[in-house]
């Protein structure tokens, strides 16, 4: 079973990269841009047929390793 995990910085946490990227996009002429926030994306394949079990496993991966929960949030989406 395949999942897509998106990791983003929590709402109020400073994103230095997003800030610089957004400024540069404006400098090179991109209009109507209000904000850029940068995150991470994972594609995860789990060998498990029960989807709630599989989601729990992906959640565990996020909480234990993929996500720094002090500054990041994550979303899990079933792929396909």
């Amino acid at each position: 079973m395949k999942f897509e995990v998106t990791v983003t910085l929590k709402k109020d946490v400073l994103d230095p990269q997003g800030k610089v990227v957004s400024q540069t996009l404006k400098n090179i002429g991109i209009k109507n841009l209000t904000q850029v926030r940068q995150g991470k994306y994972f594609e995860i394949d789990v060998d498990e047929k029960d989807s709630s079990k599989a989601i729990d496993q992906v959640k565990e991966m996020c909480e234990k390793l993929l996500v720094n929960q002090i500054i990041e949030d994550f979303k899990i989406k079933k792929a396909g």
């Binding site: 230095p16 990269q17 610089v20 990227v21 540069t24 400098n27 090179i28 940068q38």
Partner: peptide, 12 residues
């Protein structure tokens, strides 16, 4: 700050 990719923004 090496943000995005090292050198990417300076290149612009």
């Amino acid at each position: 700050g090496d943000y995005l990719r090292s050198g990417a923004i300076a290149a612009k």
